[in-house]
Design a protein around this nucleic acid. Sequence first.
DNA 1: GTGCAACCTCGACCAAACTCGAGGTCAACG
DNA 2: CGTTGACCTCGAGTTTGGTCGAGGTTGCAC
Lengths: 153, 153
Amino acid sequence: MSKLPDLLTIGQVVQRSGIPHTALRFYEDRGLITSERTAGNQRRYQRGVLRRLAFIRAAQRVGLSLEQIRDALATLPDGRVPTRTDWQRLSRTWRAELDARIDALQRLRDRLTSCIGCGCLSLKTCSLHNADDRFAADGPGAPRLRPVCEGGR
Amino acid sequence: MSKLPDLLTIGQVVQRSGIPHTALRFYEDRGLITSERTAGNQRRYQRGVLRRLAFIRAAQRVGLSLEQIRDALATLPDGRVPTRTDWQRLSRTWRAELDARIDALQRLRDRLTSCIGCGCLSLKTCSLHNADDRFAADGPGAPRLRPVCEGGR
DNA sequence: GTGCAACCTCGACCAAACTCGAGGTCAACG
DNA sequence: CGTTGACCTCGAGTTTGGTCGAGGTTGCAC
């Protein structure tokens, strides 16, 4: 009986994920994915890496940094293949963060229209400016989702 | 004469905008703002620069690149102080862009939940992955600033 | 007319997220 | 055994959006 091979070469992963090999190695460096090695020191990936990669790309698309993604992936079980439940847990986290992000964007859009749009924009009184302050002072507590763009550092 | 002391030093602009002087010079280099010079070669900003700066920060917050912002600002009249109407025109542009971004984020969130969340994630069939493909084809060169979502391009 | 803060330029450096290239190894086919 | 293509490491380069520091000038108060 022909059985699907359990381990993928880097070339196969490139082909199936669309992610360049340079990026794969980069992700490995950064601890987002892992690989085993053959006797000849070549990488062999477990199938699950494809799901991880899809997840990484999806998370990047919504503006999360590799560091944040790595931290999230680190919550997946180490020894075994993640179950549907494991992924669901992660997904719920992203869902909440996405909701927050959408919310922030909508607020911003509405302010932008009513504030810049009306020509009243003043650094003293404008709510857009105040919004900046609020963002800047967002500090204490858990590290928030990186804002869409961090105004000044 | 009633010559209004309309011109601000860079220090004053820093104080009133909260943007560091290094960034101000950087923005000037990139053509986002302009300044006049005194006989002694020091920058003097027109009052309107404050509104421009607020606009720049607001646009950055929603994930637009300085290049995009510069292009948008370039549509403002060159010789005269922009009127409310000028700003309104710009604001409408952003409004559309923001709407598109919000839309894309929502779609992504829904897909993420229904796709990764359900554990079905497959690189062959998953719509998340198909969305990724467009990304992978982005060609060589350095990565663009990761947009909130690749909706507008 | 001097002291000093504020300002100037310019080049180096930072961080993220990669890409590229050089120089070498491994695996499989003929 | 030789060739070819896939793979390896490691360091340097790229873009965006800045910051930092050195070394020099300006502006204003005393």
